[in-house]
Design a protein around this nucleic acid. Structure first.
Ligand SMILES: [Zn+2]
Ligand SMILES: [Zn+2]
Length: 185
DNA sequence: CAAAACGTCTTC
DNA sequence: GAAGACGTTTTG
């Protein structure tokens, strides 16, 4: 699990050599279990640990020029989907964000039995938004009340980012202006 | 293995 | 379409 998002997916070799942090000493954080403490630690250090977005596709994308398109179904789908095609009115297709592109559109590959492309990966709470920082379950919201069967985090603790539908982790590429590739214009 | 909680499917 | 239920994945 050392790959960042799709790096491993693209048969290239982007992972920039991570220089040995060498930030030991005085920082033990042995007993960090509660989400609150985790957050604290992350701030203390340099906020990264496993927070992704360090050497992601977005970074070396410009270096690949156009040939990149042919190798990345993921973004291709996203780009095209921006206006239509493969998006919306799919009928029954559980729109689960275009991440891996067209890998068995509907064909229950196998891994995580569910549906939605090819095994959506669970996202983790950002840990920075207000709800994330909240501590303790309110024990009063609906999520808390029916935790037995609901399996949902307290409503007041639900991460702001997770509330939004996962954008396949490429949302950084779609700029508000609508242009997906400013550098190509 | 158990607890926590995301993603989906189902139901209202 | 929101809320509930369930299956599933993560993590300790
Ligand atoms: Zn609650
Ligand atoms: Zn959050």
């Amino acid at each position: 699990q050392l790959d960042c998002c799709h790096c491993s997916y693209l048969a290239i070799t982007p992972p920039p050599p991570h220089p040995p942090p060498s930030m030991a000493d005085t920082l033990d954080m042995s007993g960090s279990s509660s989400p609150e403490q985790q957050r604290a630690n992350r701030i203390l250090i340099g906020s990264r640990a496993e927070g992704d977005s360090m050497g992601c596709v977005t970074d070396f994308l410009p270096l690949l020029g156009c040939s990149w398109f042919s190798l990345n179904p993921g973004l291709f789908a996203l780009t095209a989907g921006g206006g239509g095609f493969l998006t919306g009115g799919g009928g029954s297709m559980g729109m689960a964000g275009v991440g891996e592109g067209v890998e068995g559109l509907r064909g229950e590959s196998s891994s995580p039995g569910g549906v939605g492309g090819a095994g959506r990966r669970k996202r983790k709470r950002c840990g920075e938004c207000v709800p994330c920082r909240r501590m303790g379950n309110c024990e009063e919201c609906s999520a808390c009340r029916n935790r037995k069967t609901g399996h949902q985090i307290c409503k007041y603790r639900k991460c702001e980012q997770l509330k939004k539908k996962a954008a396949a982790g490429l949302e950084k590429m779609v700029f508000p202006s609508g242009a997906a590739f400013p550098w190509l214009q």
